[in-house]
């Protein structure tokens, strides 16, 4: 047997499943692209030109739209909007989900029953249609989109966390902590929360994927914030020229699909990874 020394965490990255690595690579690629947009983008995404509905060529690698704006630049900047909304809504969703999951799993009984009923109700509702109505009535703004998507997408996290907490609650060290006179709040914060933390990574990643998808749905229906055109917004424009300018649909959709696939692959991998699941014991 060879001697194994604890290696720095980064070194262990290659031992992740191939699909997870692909996911991380896709996400990294997209995130880098949008972050470096000012450096990469060939033009200002708002700059009009006379080159209207031009197919991809050297000057405009992804073509131009009906106002002559460079599509590549618009996709890069649109990514900022899609990713931003995705990230912030996911954070809201995960926070709410963790709160509900912790409460249901830890207190059990009537609280659990009530919270789980509520979760079921939320699962049944056509969430995207609720979002459509809310944003239509309250107005299209980044904040409204983030809030509504976030507040409609906590059920999966809540369920995972609840199950996990129920398992933890039974475990010895919690019992031991309880016997040594720790308060319930202390047990919750000091013992249970750190142990569900590894699951949050996976949950958040999957939620980002879902939120970006929801955002594209709203924007495609014309409910996105027109001052911050996201990928879904670009696709709505693409629909108008679907029989003449294929690039307007193909490229923003490709960016969108790559991103969602990337986050989902990453989330699936993180959720299954024993290394992360059992990291903090």
């Amino acid at each position: 047997m060879s001697l194994t020394l604890p290696r720095p965490a980064l070194w262990r990255l290659p031992s992740l499943p191939a699909s997870t690595v692909i996911g991380i690579a896709l996400v990294a690629f997209v995130v880098l692209g949008t972050l470096l947009a000012p450096l990469i983008a060939p033009a200002n995404p708002l700059a009009l030109s006379t080159d209207i509905l031009a197919p991809p060529d050297a000057a405009h690698p992804l073509g131009t739209d009906d106002l002559g704006r460079d599509l590549f630049s618009r996709v890069l900047y649109g990514g900022r909007v899609s990713l931003g909304i995705g990230l912030f809504s996911a954070l809201i969703g995960v926070t709410v989900g963790v709160g509900i999951g912790l409460a249901a799993g830890f207190f059990g009984g009537a609280i659990d029953e009530a919270l789980m009923r509520m979760t079921e109700v939320f699962q049944v509702l056509p969430k995207l249609l609720v979002a459509v109505v809310v944003v239509s009535l309250l107005g299209s703004s980044l904040l409204n989109e983030i809030l509504v998507i976030g507040l409609l997408s906590w059920t999966a996290t809540a369920r995972i966390i609840r199950t996990r907490v129920m398992v933890l609650r039974e475990e010895e060290f919690i019992a031991a902590a309880a016997m040594s006179g720790a308060s319930r709040t202390r047990i919750l914060l000091r013992h249970i929360l750190p142990n569900v933390a590894p699951y949050l990574m996976a949950s958040t990643t999957l939620q980002i994927a879902g939120a970006i998808m929801s955002e594209s749905f709203l924007s495609f229906l014309g409910l996105g914030d027109p001052t911050y055109p996201s990928w879904g917004f670009l696709l709505q424009q693409g629909q108008l020229y679907i029989d003449s300018a294929w690039w307007l649909t193909t490229f923003p959709g490709l960016a969108l699909a790559m991103t969602i696939v990337g986050f989902n692959l990453m989330g699936d991998g993180l959720g299954q990874s024993r290394a992360i699941g059992g990291a903090r014991r």
Binding site: F220, W246, T249, T250, G253, L256, N264
Partner: peptide, 21 residues
């Protein structure tokens, strides 16, 4: 995974471009 990750309406748009246009 691809099927539930890719927004349906975009797949629809691609199908229109390919099979109809």
């Amino acid at each position: 995974l691809l099927g539930y990750s890719i927004p349906g309406f975009w797949i629809g748009q691609l199908l229109v471009i390919l099979f109809a246009v």
